[in-house]
Protein backbone atom coordinates (compact mmCIF):
# COMPACT_ATOMS: atom_id res chain seq x y z
CA UNK A 1 0.00 0.00 0.00
CA UNK A 2 0.99 3.58 -0.48
CA UNK A 3 0.97 4.09 3.29
CA UNK A 4 3.61 1.45 3.81
CA UNK A 5 5.71 2.81 0.95
CA UNK A 6 5.72 6.33 2.28
CA UNK A 7 6.55 5.09 5.77
CA UNK A 8 9.44 3.08 4.37
CA UNK A 9 10.77 6.18 2.72
CA UNK A 10 10.86 7.93 6.11
CA UNK A 11 14.21 6.77 7.56
CA UNK A 12 13.86 8.11 11.15
CA UNK A 13 10.35 6.72 11.37
CA UNK A 14 11.46 3.29 10.21
CA UNK A 15 14.41 3.36 12.64
CA UNK A 16 12.02 4.11 15.53
CA UNK A 17 9.66 1.36 14.43
CA UNK A 18 12.52 -1.17 14.22
CA UNK A 19 13.83 -0.09 17.61
CA UNK A 20 10.41 -0.48 19.23
CA UNK A 21 9.87 -3.88 17.61
CA UNK A 22 13.26 -4.99 18.93
CA UNK A 23 12.42 -3.75 22.44
CA UNK A 24 9.05 -5.49 22.34
CA UNK A 25 10.64 -8.73 21.11
CA UNK A 26 13.25 -8.54 23.84
CA UNK A 27 10.46 -8.20 26.41
CA UNK A 28 8.54 -11.13 24.97
CA UNK A 29 11.57 -13.38 24.75
CA UNK A 30 13.04 -12.16 28.04
CA UNK A 31 13.41 -15.61 29.69
CA UNK A 32 15.48 -16.89 26.78
CA UNK A 33 17.84 -13.99 26.31
CA UNK A 34 18.65 -12.54 29.72
CA UNK A 35 21.82 -13.84 31.37
CA UNK A 36 20.49 -13.72 34.95
CA UNK A 37 17.19 -14.06 36.79
CA UNK A 38 16.07 -10.46 37.43
CA UNK A 39 15.07 -11.34 41.00
CA UNK A 40 18.34 -13.10 41.87
CA UNK A 41 19.81 -11.30 44.87
CA UNK A 42 23.57 -11.42 45.19
CA UNK A 43 24.47 -9.00 47.96
CA UNK A 44 28.17 -9.71 47.81
CA UNK A 45 28.20 -8.46 44.27
CA UNK A 46 26.17 -5.27 44.73
CA UNK A 47 26.96 -2.08 42.80
CA UNK A 48 29.17 -4.00 40.40
CA UNK A 49 30.21 -1.74 37.56
CA UNK A 50 29.78 -2.45 33.89
CA UNK A 51 31.80 -5.37 32.65
CA UNK A 52 31.70 -8.69 30.90
CA UNK A 53 29.89 -10.51 33.69
CA UNK A 54 27.23 -7.84 34.25
CA UNK A 55 26.97 -5.70 31.09
CA UNK A 56 25.24 -2.83 32.85
CA UNK A 57 26.38 -3.65 36.37
CA UNK A 58 24.23 -4.63 39.37
CA UNK A 59 21.95 -2.67 41.67
CA UNK A 60 21.86 -2.24 45.48
CA UNK A 61 20.84 -5.88 45.97
CA UNK A 62 23.28 -7.22 43.42
CA UNK A 63 20.62 -7.91 40.78
CA UNK A 64 21.69 -7.74 37.15
CA UNK A 65 20.49 -4.40 35.75
CA UNK A 66 20.33 -5.52 32.11
CA UNK A 67 18.11 -8.48 33.02
CA UNK A 68 15.86 -6.23 35.03
CA UNK A 69 15.61 -3.72 32.18
CA UNK A 70 14.64 -6.43 29.70
CA UNK A 71 12.06 -7.88 32.07
CA UNK A 72 10.85 -4.36 32.83
CA UNK A 73 9.79 -4.07 29.20
CA UNK A 74 6.93 -6.42 30.00
CA UNK A 75 5.48 -4.13 32.62
CA UNK A 76 6.22 -0.79 30.99
CA UNK A 77 5.66 -1.48 27.32
CA UNK A 78 3.24 -4.36 27.68
CA UNK A 79 0.88 -2.66 30.06
CA UNK A 80 0.98 0.68 28.26
CA UNK A 81 -0.01 -1.10 25.04
CA UNK A 82 -2.78 -2.88 26.94
CA UNK A 83 -3.97 0.45 28.31
CA UNK A 84 -4.04 1.99 24.87
CA UNK A 85 -5.80 -1.03 23.40
CA UNK A 86 -8.59 -0.87 25.96
CA UNK A 87 -8.87 2.92 25.70
CA UNK A 88 -9.04 2.92 21.91
CA UNK A 89 -11.64 0.13 21.90
CA UNK A 90 -13.85 2.04 24.32
CA UNK A 91 -13.28 5.20 22.27
CA UNK A 92 -14.26 3.50 19.01
CA UNK A 93 -17.45 2.01 20.43
CA UNK A 94 -18.62 5.15 22.23
CA UNK A 95 -17.27 7.65 19.69
CA UNK A 96 -18.85 5.91 16.72
CA UNK A 97 -22.16 5.49 18.56
CA UNK A 98 -22.17 9.20 19.34
CA UNK A 99 -21.15 10.18 15.82
CA UNK A 100 -23.66 7.91 14.13
CA UNK A 101 -26.67 7.95 16.40
CA UNK A 102 -26.46 11.68 17.14
CA UNK A 103 -29.30 13.15 19.16
CA UNK A 104 -29.59 12.32 22.83
CA UNK A 105 -26.94 9.58 22.84
CA UNK A 106 -24.39 12.00 21.48
CA UNK A 107 -25.40 14.79 23.83
CA UNK A 108 -25.18 12.50 26.87
CA UNK A 109 -21.81 10.99 25.92
CA UNK A 110 -20.28 14.32 25.03
CA UNK A 111 -21.36 15.97 28.29
CA UNK A 112 -19.93 12.98 30.16
CA UNK A 113 -16.68 13.44 28.25
CA UNK A 114 -16.69 17.15 29.07
CA UNK A 115 -17.01 16.38 32.77
CA UNK A 116 -14.26 13.78 32.68
CA UNK A 117 -11.98 16.02 30.68
CA UNK A 118 -12.34 18.89 33.09
CA UNK A 119 -10.27 17.01 35.73
CA UNK A 120 -6.51 17.22 35.34
CA UNK A 121 -5.70 13.64 34.34
CA UNK A 122 -2.64 13.26 36.61
CA UNK A 123 -4.68 14.25 39.64
CA UNK A 124 -7.47 11.88 38.67
CA UNK A 125 -5.09 8.98 38.14
CA UNK A 126 -3.46 9.63 41.53
CA UNK A 127 -6.88 9.79 43.18
CA UNK A 128 -8.08 6.54 41.56
CA UNK A 129 -4.90 4.65 42.42
CA UNK A 130 -5.08 6.11 45.90
CA UNK A 131 -8.61 4.81 46.31
CA UNK A 132 -8.08 1.38 44.76
CA UNK A 133 -4.65 0.87 46.26
CA UNK A 134 -1.29 0.45 44.55
CA UNK A 135 -0.83 -2.18 41.88
CA UNK A 136 -0.32 -2.39 38.13
CA UNK A 137 -3.94 -3.36 37.35
CA UNK A 138 -5.22 -0.29 39.16
CA UNK A 139 -2.76 1.93 37.30
CA UNK A 140 -4.01 0.56 33.99
CA UNK A 141 -7.61 1.05 35.09
CA UNK A 142 -6.89 4.61 36.19
CA UNK A 143 -5.16 5.44 32.92
CA UNK A 144 -8.08 4.05 30.93
CA UNK A 145 -10.58 6.07 32.96
CA UNK A 146 -8.52 9.20 32.48
CA UNK A 147 -8.01 8.74 28.76
CA UNK A 148 -11.21 7.34 27.27
CA UNK A 149 -12.99 10.72 26.99
CA UNK A 150 -10.24 12.07 24.71
CA UNK A 151 -10.53 9.14 22.35
CA UNK A 152 -14.32 9.10 22.40
CA UNK A 153 -14.37 12.75 21.50
CA UNK A 154 -11.78 12.43 18.79
CA UNK A 155 -13.40 9.40 17.18
CA UNK A 156 -16.83 11.03 17.34
CA UNK A 157 -15.45 14.08 15.52
CA UNK A 158 -13.86 11.90 12.85
CA UNK A 159 -17.08 9.90 12.51
CA UNK A 160 -19.19 12.99 12.06
CA UNK A 161 -16.77 14.36 9.54
CA UNK A 162 -16.90 11.20 7.43
CA UNK A 163 -20.59 10.48 7.96
CA UNK A 164 -21.38 13.42 5.66
CA UNK A 165 -19.17 12.11 2.89
CA UNK A 166 -21.04 11.28 -0.27
CA UNK A 167 -19.67 7.75 -0.47
CA UNK A 168 -21.21 6.95 2.89
CA UNK A 169 -24.47 8.50 1.74
CA UNK A 170 -24.31 6.34 -1.37
CA UNK A 171 -23.75 3.21 0.70
CA UNK A 172 -26.82 4.09 2.76
CA UNK A 173 -28.97 4.71 -0.29
CA UNK A 174 -27.76 1.46 -1.83
CA UNK A 175 -29.08 -0.30 1.24
CA UNK A 176 -25.95 -1.11 3.23
CA UNK A 177 -26.36 -1.20 7.00
CA UNK A 178 -24.42 0.72 9.62
CA UNK A 179 -22.10 -2.20 10.56
CA UNK A 180 -20.96 -2.51 6.94
CA UNK A 181 -20.39 1.23 6.64
CA UNK A 182 -18.36 1.32 9.84
CA UNK A 183 -16.27 -1.69 8.90
CA UNK A 184 -15.69 -0.87 5.28
CA UNK A 185 -15.50 2.93 5.22
CA UNK A 186 -15.31 4.55 8.64
CA UNK A 187 -12.76 2.40 10.46
CA UNK A 188 -10.17 2.47 7.67
CA UNK A 189 -10.61 6.23 7.33
CA UNK A 190 -10.46 6.88 11.05
CA UNK A 191 -7.67 4.35 11.62
CA UNK A 192 -5.04 6.85 10.55
CA UNK A 193 -5.93 9.48 13.08
CA UNK A 194 -6.49 6.92 15.83
CA UNK A 195 -3.14 5.25 15.24
CA UNK A 196 -1.29 8.55 15.28
CA UNK A 197 -2.85 9.70 18.53
CA UNK A 198 -2.51 6.28 20.15
CA UNK A 199 1.17 6.06 19.21
CA UNK A 200 1.91 9.47 20.67
CA UNK A 201 -0.07 8.59 23.78
CA UNK A 202 1.65 5.26 24.36
CA UNK A 203 4.77 7.22 25.26
CA UNK A 204 2.74 9.25 27.73
CA UNK A 205 1.31 6.11 29.33
CA UNK A 206 4.78 4.59 29.69
CA UNK A 207 5.78 7.75 31.51
CA UNK A 208 2.66 7.56 33.67
CA UNK A 209 3.24 3.92 34.65
CA UNK A 210 6.88 4.66 35.33
CA UNK A 211 6.05 7.75 37.35
CA UNK A 212 3.52 5.92 39.52
CA UNK A 213 5.92 3.02 40.02
CA UNK A 214 8.62 5.57 40.93
CA UNK A 215 6.26 6.86 43.60
CA UNK A 216 5.61 3.30 44.76
CA UNK A 217 2.00 3.24 43.58
CA UNK A 218 2.42 1.08 40.51
CA UNK A 219 4.41 -2.09 40.08
CA UNK A 220 5.26 -3.76 43.39
CA UNK A 221 8.66 -5.29 44.10
CA UNK A 222 10.23 -7.60 43.18
CA UNK A 223 8.67 -7.30 39.67
CA UNK A 224 11.14 -5.22 37.67
CA UNK A 225 9.88 -2.01 36.08
CA UNK A 226 11.77 0.95 34.68
CA UNK A 227 10.14 3.61 36.83
CA UNK A 228 10.56 1.54 39.96
CA UNK A 229 14.25 0.94 39.15
CA UNK A 230 14.60 4.67 38.85
CA UNK A 231 12.91 5.06 42.23
CA UNK A 232 15.26 2.59 43.85
CA UNK A 233 18.26 4.27 42.27
CA UNK A 234 17.09 7.62 43.61
CA UNK A 235 17.71 6.51 47.23
CA UNK A 236 21.39 5.99 46.54
CA UNK A 237 21.77 8.80 44.05
CA UNK A 238 24.53 10.55 46.01
CA UNK A 239 26.80 7.52 46.19
CA UNK A 240 26.01 5.77 42.92
CA UNK A 241 24.53 8.31 40.48
CA UNK A 242 25.27 6.03 37.50
CA UNK A 243 22.49 3.69 38.74
CA UNK A 244 19.97 6.23 37.42
CA UNK A 245 21.29 6.04 33.88
CA UNK A 246 20.13 2.64 32.50
CA UNK A 247 16.41 2.95 33.39
CA UNK A 248 16.38 6.70 32.71
CA UNK A 249 17.92 6.39 29.25
CA UNK A 250 15.69 3.41 28.41
CA UNK A 251 12.54 5.38 29.25
CA UNK A 252 13.85 8.34 27.30
CA UNK A 253 14.64 6.29 24.20
CA UNK A 254 11.41 4.33 24.14
CA UNK A 255 9.17 7.35 24.74
CA UNK A 256 11.08 9.41 22.18
CA UNK A 257 10.81 6.55 19.68
CA UNK A 258 7.03 6.47 20.15
CA UNK A 259 6.78 10.22 19.63
CA UNK A 260 8.91 10.22 16.48
CA UNK A 261 7.00 7.23 15.14
CA UNK A 262 3.73 9.05 15.78
CA UNK A 263 4.93 12.02 13.73
CA UNK A 264 6.07 9.77 10.89
CA UNK A 265 2.76 7.94 10.88
CA UNK A 266 0.92 11.22 10.72
CA UNK A 267 2.83 12.17 7.58
CA UNK A 268 2.48 8.73 6.04
CA UNK A 269 -1.26 8.51 6.69
CA UNK A 270 -2.08 12.02 5.58
CA UNK A 271 -4.04 11.48 2.39
CA UNK A 272 -2.96 14.85 0.99
CA UNK A 273 0.66 13.98 1.47
CA UNK A 274 0.91 11.08 -0.92
CA UNK A 275 4.01 11.25 -3.07
CA UNK A 276 1.88 10.17 -6.02
CA UNK A 277 -0.41 13.16 -5.61
CA UNK A 278 1.21 15.76 -7.80
CA UNK A 279 0.32 19.42 -7.83
CA UNK A 280 -2.41 19.73 -10.42
CA UNK A 281 -2.57 22.77 -12.62
Amino acid sequence: MTFWQSLKRDRPGMACLCFLVLVALAGLLAPYIVPYDPADIDVRNKFASCGWTHWLGTDHLGRDILSRLVYGTRASLGFSLLTMGVTVSIGIVLGMSAGFLRGKVEAFLMRLCDVMMSFPSEVMILAIVGMLGPGLENVVLACVIAKWPWYTRMIRTVTRQYADMNYIRFARVAGYGTPYIIRRHLLPCAAGEIIVLATLDTGAVILMISALSFLGLGVQPPTPEWGMMLGEAKDIMILYPEQMLPPGITILLVVAAFNFLGDSLRDALDPWHHPSREVTV
Binding site: F170, V173, G175
Partner: peptide, 18 residues
Amino acid sequence: RGSCSVVFQDYVTSVNPG
Protein backbone atom coordinates in the same frame (compact mmCIF):
# COMPACT_ATOMS: atom_id res chain seq x y z
CA ARG B 1 -32.29 -3.53 -2.07
CA GLY B 2 -30.27 -1.56 -4.56
CA SER B 3 -33.25 -0.30 -6.51
CA CYS B 4 -32.59 3.27 -5.39
CA SER B 5 -29.38 5.01 -6.36
CA VAL B 6 -27.77 8.42 -6.42
CA VAL B 7 -25.02 10.40 -8.15
CA PHE B 8 -23.78 13.51 -6.36
CA GLN B 9 -22.29 16.74 -7.65
CA ASP B 10 -19.06 16.54 -5.74
CA TYR B 11 -17.36 13.55 -7.29
CA VAL B 12 -14.30 13.96 -5.08
CA THR B 13 -16.15 13.11 -1.85
CA SER B 14 -18.36 10.60 -3.65
CA VAL B 15 -15.70 7.92 -3.72
CA ASN B 16 -13.58 6.56 -0.92
CA PRO B 17 -10.08 7.85 -1.73
CA GLY B 18 -8.48 4.61 -0.60
